[in-house]
């Protein structure tokens, strides 16, 4: 039973992601209220913020897998860490794109250095882009796994320190969503937000497993070719 379930995990995950996404879009359209100041365009918030949070989740997951590479010498974790960071970069780019669109609509410019969140994602994008440069200029093997894992761990140290630094460098004028008094959102807003975040996470998990399965298959194929070539 569990084995069958495990084999069917990916399709189930994909179906759940689709259902959640449909529900999220419906609730963004019909449940979430139209913003008094920004009007309809504020609804990009329900995509922008969940995408950003998902990117963080991927970076954290990648670092966790990296820790397992170093700590437990878990060979499979190297590929998992790589795939997590790859997906994280994709979601990071989407954060930059949606953030840029939002900046254009609300402030009239495509790029705003005053938006800490956007600047942080730009720094992270550059940092993790270099991860791929590193990975593709070292031959596969335990040394590459170690180097990539150490770099991924630097990433999770960089996120809070950069966040602090960029906050210090700028005034915080991006719309504040959570304050110390709890969410500043109405119940309906909060519901739509949570639903779209859950949908985004489910979508992210499906993409992660699809890419991982593809990469594993590719690796198996190469191994078989190697055996045949002997």
């Amino acid at each position: 039973m569990t084995r069958a379930l495990r084999q069917q995990r990916l399709p189930i995950l994909a179906v759940v992601a689709c259902a959640l996404m449909a529900a999220a879009i419906a609730s963004i359209a019909y449940v979430a209220p139209v913003d008094a100041n920004q009007g309809l365009s504020q609804k990009i918030f329900y995509f922008h913020v969940p995408i950003a949070l998902t990117a963080y989740a991927f970076f954290a997951w990648g670092a966790w897998k990296a820790l397992r590479v170093l700590w437990k010498r878990d060979e499979a974790a190297d590929l998992e860490s790589y795939v997590a960071i790859h997906q994280g970069v994709i979601f990071g780019v989407l954060t930059l794109v949606t953030g840029s669109i939002w900046a254009k609509i609300s402030w009239g410019v495509w790029w705003a250095w005053s938006s800490n969140q956007l600047v942080l994602f730009l720094v992270l994008f550059l940092f993790y882009a270099a991860y791929f440069m590193l990975r593709y200029s070292v031959d596969p093997g335990p040394q590459r796994a170690n180097l990539c894992a150490v770099y991924a761990l630097f990433g999770v140290a960089l996120i809070p320190v950069s966040f602090l630094a960029i906050r210090l460098a700028n005034d915080f004028i991006h719309p504040t969503v959570f304050t110390s008094n709890g969410p500043q959102m109405s119940g309906r807003m909060f519901f739509a937000f949570c639903l779209s975040w859950a949908a985004m996470l489910a979508l992210a998990a499906s993409l992660y497993h699809v890419e991982l399965a593809g990469k594993r298959l590719d690796s198996r194929l190469r191994e078989l070719r190697e055996v045949l070539a002997r």
């Binding site: 596969p140 093997g141 690796s219």
Partner: peptide
């Protein structure tokens, strides 16, 4: 000992 898919 393997390096990636290459068996050394």
């Amino acid at each position: 000992k393997r390096y990636g898919n290459r068996r050394a």
